[in-house]
Amino acid sequence: MEKIIKIEHLFKSFGNVKAVNDLSFSVREGELFAFLGVNGAGKSTTISMMCGQLLQDSGKIEICGKDTCASMADIFSRIGVVFQNSVLDPFLTVRENLESRAAMYGISGRKFDSRLNELASLLSFENILGRQFGKLSGGQKRRIDIARALFHNPDILFLDEPTTGLDPQTRKILWDVVTELRRGQNMTVLLTTHYMEEAADADYVVIIDSGRVSAEGTPLELKNRYTGDFVLIYTDDENFVSSLGFPYQRLRDSFRISVPNCAEATRMIVHNQDKFVDYEITKGKMDDVFLSVTGKKLTVGDEK
């Protein structure tokens, strides 16, 4: 797959604060790319630079083979952005909002009607087209924000914390749409999120901290690199669990034992077959990866 976004040695400071500090990564075409970091890590600054809203101090950003400093006008028609907050007009109806934004990409008349019907059906908002945007629920607003970003069929979709505060049904609709677009149109999606289960479904993950890449890889690679495995045993015999010699966490009706790897888990179970009657082995979660990476920043930096 071709690299559709390339970022090389990107720097951006606000006064003495280095928001982005020698950041380099790339995103492949058609990929779901998760960009993770705590608040203030530099995610939004990086996205703002990618979307042409901020100029970098130094470094290079290439989107669809074009330099953002030289050809941003060409790039705008190939990207769609869903911002953290709704940025549509509260006093206009859904239709009027989409009509005014579509016109900015030269979409009007029949072309607009056809695309509107397509997106309204895809994102299930046919019945709220005439309603004032400001009076919609959070979930409904989010669907319209996404429709606005998709109206001109962009090659790359930037989703800046798109599901924060959304109900599970709207989150599902959003992810179904994203999956469908990626399959059908090979759309590249760059996602920032605080929900680690969403990052777990990504093709590639970059974790940044203080404006630098702290870790990157596929979710599996990151889990293998930064977390061990876990054995969940359903028992109430804490003495036995404690005697195994591994750190564990007591849950409501079970214990979560942390083991270095799957081989160690197998060895432990084989040696205690009579006690391991009801159990499961799980990989570490992306939450564990994130905590591990951001908590061991210097070590990780040294290792790299």
Partner: peptide, 13 residues
Amino acid sequence: MTGVRRDFDVTPV
């Protein structure tokens, strides 16, 4: 203030 300008600024206009 509402961020509408940010939205305008990512269009080719």
